[in-house]
């Protein structure tokens, strides 16, 4: 029996497709190839042109299902859930993955309950099991202390959210061909109980620490609020954003959206700098899947050095200025 389609949920904001949409295609392409089935990207949005949607095809989608309506312009879980459930009932996909963003982690649980199927949160690995064709979903749990592999043997679709940046976006191939299928929005699917009535951007620029390539985080070792200037300086030079430990946030040195760790955000950047952070298990849970970790701390016994690819034991107030100077030198070369 041929397998049914593999679906990925595309996300858009301000009329543009978000990067995570392409990361999911990278995951989905492998799964669909192994199952010898089609990869489909699903987008619910206010409106989007064929030209923009073609990007999903160039990055590997065989089909793009798009539902457009002013009611889908902003994310409200109830209406989006109604539409997705309707699509699932109509097309019966085998696998359905979304990004573990605030949207994915709200929408997918809501849908999976109503679709009467299993959902695995925040996966870092997805594979097809030989023989059964089941989706093996691997995810960190208990603060990253274990990796659990989970499957949904009987219920369909098999649903998972995938940690953003845990894979690279699928590359563009101009030769890829596919179909755009516009599915009509049914007005009775609009749920008006929840309305978005405003949005305020974070005062800081580039505060989305989960989508940054480089995160430079500061902790208790900075001693006071003003010293975060050193962190910002380094972050700017590395074209990164500023993160923080819980200690720094709780002391009021920097706002909560910057917090990395168990009670903050989990980040998977290419480069993570931990400066003046001892590396409590709660902090490690939020950053240890980063590609490269650099730690600067005065305590040679600090836990952070255990997860570091490169460490400097020293006074951050000497190391950072020296590093900033050296980076300036390298740049001007």
């Amino acid at each position: 029996m041929p397998h049914r389609e593999v679906w990925t949920l595309a996300e858009a904001g301000e009329g543009k497709l978000r990067q995570v949409s392409f990361e999911l295609l990278s995951r989905g392409r492998k799964l669909a190839d192994k199952l010898e089935t089609q990869l489909c990207s699903v987008l619910l949005t206010g409106s989007m042109s064929d030209e923009d949607l073609e990007q999903l095809i160039k990055r590997g989608a065989d089909k793009v299902y798009v539902v457009e309506s002013p009611a889908l312009e902003n994310f409200t879980v109830e209406t989006h859930s109604n539409v997705l459930l309707d699509l699932i009932k109509q097309y019966k996909p085998e696998i359905f993955i979304a990004a573990a963003t605030t949207t994915g982690r709200t929408l997918m649980p809501h849908v999976s309950i109503r679709a009467n199927t299993g959902l695995t949160a925040d996966c870092t690995g997805l594979e097809i099991e030989d023989g059964t064709g089941n989706l093996l979903q691997t995810r960190p749990a208990i603060g990253g202390n274990i990796l659990a592999t989970i499957k949904t043997p009987e219920h369909r679709p098999q649903m998972a959210t995938v940690r953003p940046r845990s894979t690279r976006p699928a590359p563009i191939d101009e030769n890829n061909a596919g179909r755009i299928i516009r599915v009509e929005f049914k007005n009775n699917l609009e749920d008006k109980r929840v309305r978005r009535i405003g949005f305020r951007k974070n005062e800081d620029q580039g505060i989305d620490i989960q989508s940054a390539d480089v995160v430079v985080s500061g902790g208790k070792g900075l001693k006071k609020k003003e010293n975060f200037a050193l962190i910002r300086d380094l972050a700017d030079r590395l074209e990164g954003v500023v993160g923080a430990s819980r200690d720094a946030v709780d002391r009021g040195w920097i706002s909560y959206p910057h917090q990395v760790g168990l009670s903050g955000k989990t980040v998977t950047p290419k480069l993570y700098f931990a400066v003046g952070i001892s590396g409590a298990i709660q902090h490690l849970a939020g950053m240890k899947t980063a590609d490269t970790i650099v730690a600067i701390n005065s305590d040679p016994e600090a836990q952070i050095f255990k997860v570091a690819d490169f460490g400097i034991v020293g006074d951050l107030f000497e190391v950072l200025p020296s590093l900033n100077e050296k980076l300036e030198e390298v740049r001007s070369r």
């Binding site: 202390n145 990796l147 659990a148 499957k151 970790i293 050095f305 400097i312 006074d315």
Partner: peptide
């Protein structure tokens, strides 16, 4: 429950990076 845990592993945390003293 629709899902089943099929395997639990303990990831290796230590990266054994280079550490320099300043």
């Amino acid at each position: 429950s629709p899902t089943r845990v099929v395997k639990i592993e303990t990831p290796k945390v230590a990266r054994g990076g280079k550490i320099f003293a300043a």
